[in-house]
Amino acid sequence: MNGMITLRINGLDVQVEEGTTLLEAARFLGFKIPTLCYHEGLSPYGACRLCIVEIGEGKRARLVSSCTYPAEEGLVVRTHSERVIRARKMLVELMLSIAPNSKTIQDLASELGVQQVRFEVRNEECILCGLCVRMCAEQMDARAIGFVGRGQERRITTPFDMKSEACRTCGGCIYICPVCQLRCQGPEAPSAVCGSCLQLEPTCLEAYDDLMCYMGPAGVCGTCIRPVPDELRERERTKVKV
């Protein structure tokens, strides 16, 4: 064997090198799989579970994290089955309840159509995806921060919560963090779901020739986040394009 593996993703056959993960194979084919704790430059971890796909068929079909699962000969993979979508939505709902002020997570919620958060919001701002730990260890070779504790007590910190000698204050951890990366004002309580940014209808273009909320808090003026009225939509549709 020349180390190539054939598998079927969403009905399409694809050949990949041995050692390729399902995530890489699916993305190669152009399928969009949401991820959070995955980063190309770091080892895959499988903590956020967002990248789950359904493998196998019938009663034996199960969900696995595609970022860590190696391609197998003849494997049947479905990246967007009903089970997968249902699970992804719940996972994002859980994430929102931990860190509603993360634009990254809010955007994921919008994409997946998550419209409610039925859990008490904790505002913890860390979803323990471990990107910072892996960044520090693998890219920066410092190993200054790591996981301590277990279960609900698990958190990321320096040894003994004290200033670490190994830390070179490179800022890599802050850079890579999906919660810190893009912060936003977040929604008003109690819904914890915003959906503003991805549901922008650039109605202000008419008046300002610009999307005014480019880098600032989106939706502050209130125009965009209202659903575009039908008449406006109709007017836009029938306007002659220049």
Partner: peptide, 21 residues
């Protein structure tokens, strides 16, 4: 279970906690 969960996966860690709540 939420006490004994290793805490790595979001689903187990947060899921057991929320079910407990």
């Amino acid at each position: 279970l939420r006490d004994e969960s290793c805490g790595k996966c979001l689903s187990c860690r947060e899921g057991t906690q929320r079910m407990f709540e």
